[in-house]
Write a protein that binds this DNA or RNA. Sequence first.
DNA 1: GCGACAG
DNA 2: ATCTTGTCGC
Length: 236
Amino acid sequence: MDIRETHPFDLAPAEAIRLQERLRKQVKPSGDAGEVSLVAGADASYARGSDVIHAVVVVLRYPDLSVVERASAATATAFPYIPGLLTFREGPAIIEAFQQLASEPDVIFFDGQGIAHPRGLGIASHMGVLFDRPAVGVAKSLLVGTATEPGPGRGSTAPILQDGETIGMAVRTKERVKPVYVSVGHRIDLSQAVDLVLATGRGYRLPEPTRQAHLFANTVRREEGRDDRQTGLPAR
DNA sequence: GCGACAG
DNA sequence: ATCTTGTCGC
C-alpha cells in the first residue's frame, strides 16, 4: 500500500514541524547496512515556474557501480521549498518513484541532509524511517552545523559539529573540489556511510548513485515532461 | 529584530 | 532546484 495514505504531506508548515519532531524519535542513526550489493540514489528535478516534481531512483550494483535499474514518477506539489521542510515538497514524488522500483537496494543515498537537520530529520532520515531501510544523506551544502575545511586530498574529512556533537562529516570526494556533506539517514553508522560515499565515487564530486540520479532526473523532466507547459513565460 | 537557510 | 555561454584552472 501507499505510505502516503498513512503519512500526511499536505500540511501547514507548523504541522509539518510537529510531525518531524514526532518522527525523529524513530530514527536510528547507527547500524550496519550489511553486505552491500545494491546502492540507490534518489533525486528530484523541476522546472522553475512549475509545481510538477520529477523524482527518480537509480539502483547501481556495488562495487562495480553499473546501473541495474531506474524508476521515476512525477507529481504536482503545492508545498514550497522551505529550508528544513524539503521532504514535504519532494517526499511524495520520491515515494512514488520507489513504488515503481522492482529491486530492493541495500542502502539509499538521498540528495540532502540526514540527521544534520534542525530537528534531526532531514530527507534521508525521514525517507529512511518511512521505508525502514538504511539511508544516507549526501548534501552539497550545510543546513545546520559547522565544519572546518577538509584537507585538499580525496578522502579527507572534517566533522560537522553542532553543540559539540558530530552530526555528520564533510568529505572531500575529489581533490581540490568543494566537499560534500554526509550525515547518517537511518540504520547505518556515519563511518560506513562515509566509506560508501567514497567507495561509490568515480572521479566526480558526487558519488555515482547521486550523480546518476541527478542526470536521470533531468532527462526524465525534459522528455516525459512535455505536459507542464512552457518555460517561455517572461520572468519579470 | 536581524540573518541563515538542504533542494 | 532552475536559468545559461563562455571561460579559467588543473
